[in-house]
């Protein structure tokens, strides 16, 4: 028993209702330190709501969320970020009138004593995500793939121990996807960063995730290594089957 590592993030019986509609229903899972974990499911399955619960944007109706052994549900998004959970938004939210560099520096500000060091930290991350050459541009002028990268860069700049990535591959071309996968894997290895990703791009999920959690209508229906989960009859029916039907 004592040999069992403590999970970094533990979601227990999380439930969230909107005006009687249950968006997330009794969901539980745990993410280990430095693990790459994917949450998949058809549209409207409650994935983004789940992220909002973890990141503190929504309050839980039932259940608990623990991070690094401490209970975090009920705290504000900024407090949760301070404790080491960063997030990206599915619909990217750059600071449009600010430069790419300042966008990332604002993330780095959290752990930097002043703006100069925040900018230095930002530059380092911008290099990793191939945005360094565009650091002087206004974020509003970036293309969508670059905005997705900026979203990730900004979240990474807060030096999290766990990052919630909400469909950062969507809209990227296959080569760009591979590039992002490689960058994420590097950071995951180099900094022991745990990653929880919502992803529709199965190519990325299969390449990165060690375990996959499947949601359907707000409830958990399967969890396991990606190869196993994609063979699960219920998953195929609810999600992959649904997709094939299109």
């Amino acid at each position: 028993m004592s040999a069992v590592a403590q999970p970094l993030l533990a979601v227990r019986n999380a439930t969230k209702r909107f005006r009687g509609l249950t968006a997330v229903s009794d969901v539980s899972f745990a993410v280990m330190p430095a693990e790459i974990f994917a949450v998949i499911g058809p549209n409207g399955a409650g994935k983004t709501t789940l992220f909002n619960l973890i990141a503190g944007a929504f309050a839980l109706d039932e259940g608990e969320i623990h991070f690094d052994g401490r209970r975090i549900d009920g705290q504000s998004p900024d407090k949760i970020c301070e404790q080491g959970i960063a997030r990206t938004f599915q619909i990217v939210k750059p600071f449009p009138e600010l430069s790419v560099r300042d966008n990332v520096a604002i993330g780095a500000m959290l752990r930097a004593p002043d703006m100069d060091s925040a900018r230095a930290a930002a530059d380092e991350i911008l290099r990793k995500l191939d945005l360094f050459d565009k650091r002087g541009q206004k974020a509003a002028s970036l293309t969508l793939p670059d905005r997705k990268r900026l979203e990730v860069a900004r979240a990474l700049a807060t030096r999290p121990r766990l990052i919630l990535l909400d469909e950062v591959m969507a809209g990227l071309r296959p080569t760009e996807t591979d590039h992002m996968v490689a960058a994420l894997r590097d950071i995951n290895r180099a900094e022991q960063l745990a990653i929880v990703m919502i992803e529709h791009v199965m190519r990325a999920v299969m390449a990165l995730a060690e375990r996959v959690h499947v949601l359907h209508h707000g409830a958990s229906i399967a969890e396991g290594p990606p190869q196993e989960v994609t063979r699960d009859a219920r998953v195929i029916e609810s999600y992959l089957g649904l997709k094939a039907a299109h």
Partner: peptide, 10 residues
């Protein structure tokens, strides 16, 4: 620019 994004960045 975006209060929600700012909050998410701590």
């Amino acid at each position: 620019e975006d209060a929600q994004a700012a909050r998410a960045l701590g």
